[in-house]
């Protein structure tokens, strides 16, 4: 992503966001509420139009090769929404129609992975928030994408649900070699889940992707690093 800029009519937005996410990363995008995380997430999935800059996913330019770029991307943006009038199975079938290599067995396997096999034929409208989150994650994972974009994936989840989601992400990154780009305002969550982090504050990038391991050499925690970085930028 290079120079991504999107300013809304009210003057808020993001300016000149540049960073790279590499294969195998669990890349955390950390920032407080209203910092512009979702704006960036929407920009890189084509949900909003960016005014400046460009986004390349696996070498494909999002503006000119949208279909090719999104073929290897799974995403949950803003909230884990699903079609509430469809069953869990139908929600996944909806996605599978876009991919030739996804079959019924893949749907069943994924429902098992997110612990929803029992509720396969139940309408998603009757699901709890945690179940909807898991179904949304199954939708994102179904085509076996190389990159998963998750916007605040643990938002609204209880402790157990948060731990389950975190473990699932780590497992997928390790076993299926998937790359994750995850936004969050929870510093501890990012510290526990990710191996790299970029910090955004008031629409600007404070740093563009540092390994959490190297951060821990100089700071006690990611929280200390975050406060130090934001202070250096003169924002706190």
């Amino acid at each position: 992503m290079a120079g991504l800029t999107k300013i809304y009519k009210n003057g808020r937005g993001v300016k000149d966001i540049t960073f790279d996410v590499y294969t195998g990363d669990i890349f955390g995008f950390l920032g407080p509420n209203g910092a512009g995380k979702t704006t960036v997430m929407k920009g890189i999935t084509g949900l909003n139009t960016i005014q400046k800059g460009n986004v390349r996913i696996l070498g494909y330019d999002l503006n000119f090769q949208f279909e090719s770029a999104m073929r290897n991307v799974g995403s949950i943006i803003e909230t884990a929404d699903v079609y509430e009038y469809m069953s869990a199975y139908e929600n996944l079938k909806f996605v599978s129609r876009f991919y030739k290599n996804v079959n019924e067995e893949d749907i069943d396997n994924l429902l098992e992975l997110v612990n929803l096999t029992k509720y396969k034929q139940e309408k998603a409208g009757k699901f709890s928030l945690g179940m909807k989150q898991r179904l949304a994650l199954a939708r994102a994972l179904l085509p076996n994408p190389k990159l998963i974009i998750l916007d605040e994936p643990t938002n609204g989840l209880d402790i157990e649900g948060t731990v389950q989601m975190r473990n699932l992400i780590k497992e997928l990154a390790e076993k299926r070699k998937m790359t994750f780009f995850i936004s969050s305002h929870l510093v501890h969550e990012v510290e526990l889940m990710c191996n790299k982090v970029a910090i955004i504050h008031e629409g600007r990038l404070v740093n563009s992707g540092i390994s959490i391991e190297s951060i821990k050499k100089d700071f006690n925690s990611l929280e200390d690093f975050y406060l130090d970085q934001v202070k250096e930028g003169g924002k706190v």
């Binding site: 999935t45 949900l47 999104m70 803003e78 909230t79 929404d81 699903v82 909806f94 876009f98």
Partner: peptide, 14 residues
């Protein structure tokens, strides 16, 4: 309104 339009907008389709 149902916030489901994004589900198709993020699929590999123009």
């Amino acid at each position: 309104a149902d916030r489901t339009l994004k589900l198709v907008l993020t699929m590999p389709i123009s």
